[in-house]
């Protein structure tokens, strides 16, 4: 089991993307991608709706292919077996549909361990403590036995997040993980992701909250019209004013005792 919370190496994972075009059918969605990502980075993917952020994440997850190469630890992603890939990559899709079966939260979280043990027992087995710890990390201990269809939307989102985090994969892909979380849990999640990155994991998250993205991430990819317009550290992204351009908004900053904060105005 690659439970990696206590690992402090910074070379757990290396991703290198050289893609001329990524499309679905005849429609081209992304073009001219060229970047490298390493374990230890917390990368925020920002950009307007329809700019290709989700496609970028699906590409990294191996759910679709493009023209060019995508190397995972020096080997093309599609040369890794499905099982091996699932042990390296965890992916939280932007899927707002709720699970159809009224499974308890605990069993939903345990699904994240399927790549490591196809016949997993959620209790009294070797995974019990790993699952318990992840439930506690995501503040789910009190509702661990409630069916997933009888909890609130934010609680459900936390269960899905815990599912994605429980395996401890070195590459963590999250598509809008802050959706429907309250402010305290938004901050808690960003801290959790930053901790994972500090432990050597590579975190790539699509975020719409510019303030949180620029505060917690170590690197920002700004997408617009299917291309990466800017790829830099948060301070440089903020200084360049590129986010104001791609979103068409004004971003105001203020220095407070709690650090630099950002807010958007028309």
């Amino acid at each position: 089991m690659s439970e990696g919370g206590d690992n402090d190496q910074h070379d757990l994972i290396a991703v290198d993307v050289r893609m001329s075009r990524v499309g679905i059918g005849n429609r081209s969605i992304l073009h001219d991608l060229s970047l490298s990502m390493r374990g230890g980075e917390f990368i925020a993917v920002v950009g307007p709706n329809g700019s290709g952020k989700t496609t970028f994440l699906r590409l990294l997850a191996g759910l679709l292919r493009g023209d060019g190469e995508l190397m995972l630890n020096g080997t093309p992603l599609h040369r890794h077996t499905l099982r091996h890939r699932a042990r390296l990559i965890s992916y939280l899709p932007q899927d707002t549909r709720q699970p159809v079966w009224p499974m308890p939260v605990r069993d939903i979280v345990a699904l994240g361990l399927l790549p490591f043990d196809a016949d997993l027992q959620t209790r009294y087995g070797p995974h019990e403590q790993v699952i318990d710890r992840q439930l506690a990390d995501c503040d789910l201990t009190a509702i661990a036995d409630r069916p997933i269809d009888r909890i609130s939307g934010g609680e459900r989102m936390r269960a899905l997040l815990a599912r994605a985090l429980v395996g401890g994969q070195p590459l963590i892909l999250m598509d809008e993980p802050l959706t429907s979380l309250d402010p305290a849990h938004q901050l808690r999640l960003m801290q959790l992701l930053a901790e994972r990155a500090a432990a050597g994991h590579l975190v790539v998250a699509v975020l719409h909250d510019v303030d949180l993205a620029l505060h917690f991430a170590s690197r920002v990819l700004a997408f617009d019209k299917g291309a990466i317009l800017a790829d830099d550290v948060p301070a440089a992204i903020y200084a360049s004013g590129i986010l104001e351009t791609i979103f068409g908004v004004t971003i105001r900053g203020a220095d407070t005792e709690g650090g630099h904060i950002l807010a958007m105005r028309p």
Partner: peptide, 11 residues
Amino acid sequence: TLGEDTAASLG
């Protein structure tokens, strides 16, 4: 249970 994309990402 969590959809086709999640199932695919789980291997």
